[in-house]
Simulated assay, not measured.
Amino acid sequence: MATTAADIKKLRETTGAGMLDCKKALDESGGDLAAAQEFLRVKGLKGVTKREGRTASNGLVTAHVDGGTGTLVEVNCETDFVAKGERFGELAQRVLDQAVAVGAADAEQLLSSDLDGKTVQQVLDEANASLGEKIEVRRVARLEGDQVVSYLHRTSPDLPPQIGAIVAVSGERAAEVGRDVAMHAAAMSPTFLSRDEVSEEVVANERRLAEETAREEGRPEQAMPKIVEGRVNGYFKDNVLLEQAFAKEAKKTVGTYAKEAGVEITGFARFRVGATA
Rank of each mutant, 00 (worst) to 15 (best):
155 T>F: 13
145 G>H: 02
220 P>L: 10
207 R>L: 05
192 F>A: 12
191 T>K: 15
128 N>E: 05
113 S>V: 04
193 L>Q: 06
152 L>M: 07
192 F>N: 07
161 P>I: 07
168 A>H: 03
223 A>L: 15
215 R>C: 10
163 I>V: 15
168 A>F: 01
226 K>Y: 03
113 S>G: 12
127 A>G: 11
142 R>N: 06
199 S>H: 08
197 E>Q: 14
229 E>Y: 00
190 P>A: 12
228 V>G: 04
204 A>R: 14
132 G>P: 06
192 F>Q: 05
107 A>C: 11
117 G>Y: 01
114 D>P: 01
154 R>S: 10
173 R>I: 13
127 A>M: 08
201 E>S: 14
116 D>Q: 05
132 G>R: 04
115 L>C: 09
177 V>T: 11
167 V>C: 08
192 F>E: 09
138 R>H: 12
139 R>S: 09
117 G>W: 02
216 E>I: 06
157 P>V: 10
229 E>C: 00
113 S>W: 06
154 R>D: 00
180 D>N: 09
125 D>E: 14
228 V>F: 09
145 G>I: 06
143 L>P: 03
114 D>R: 03
149 V>M: 10
121 Q>N: 10
184 H>E: 00
196 D>F: 01
140 V>Q: 10
117 G>D: 04
210 A>W: 02
213 T>C: 00
175 A>F: 03
204 A>H: 06
154 R>Q: 13
208 R>K: 15
118 K>P: 02
107 A>N: 07
108 E>V: 00
213 T>K: 13
149 V>C: 08
163 I>D: 01
199 S>P: 03
207 R>M: 13
110 L>M: 12
122 Q>T: 15
164 G>Y: 01
216 E>G: 04
184 H>F: 08
227 I>N: 10
151 Y>Q: 07
165 A>C: 13
157 P>F: 07
206 E>C: 09
185 A>P: 07
203 V>M: 09
120 V>W: 02
203 V>P: 06
184 H>A: 04
209 L>R: 11
212 E>F: 07
137 V>P: 07
204 A>Q: 13
146 D>P: 03
151 Y>H: 15
164 G>E: 05
191 T>N: 14
112 S>P: 01
185 A>E: 04
138 R>K: 14
186 A>S: 14
226 K>I: 03
155 T>W: 05
182 A>W: 01
173 R>K: 15
197 E>Y: 02
231 R>I: 10
204 A>I: 06
210 A>Q: 03
197 E>T: 00
151 Y>V: 02
136 E>S: 15
219 R>L: 11
173 R>C: 11
205 N>V: 00
224 M>E: 14
172 E>N: 13
120 V>M: 12
219 R>V: 01
145 G>L: 08
180 D>T: 06
221 E>T: 14
224 M>Q: 13
110 L>R: 05
174 A>W: 03
145 G>E: 05
123 V>A: 10
113 S>A: 14
230 G>S: 10
187 A>Q: 09
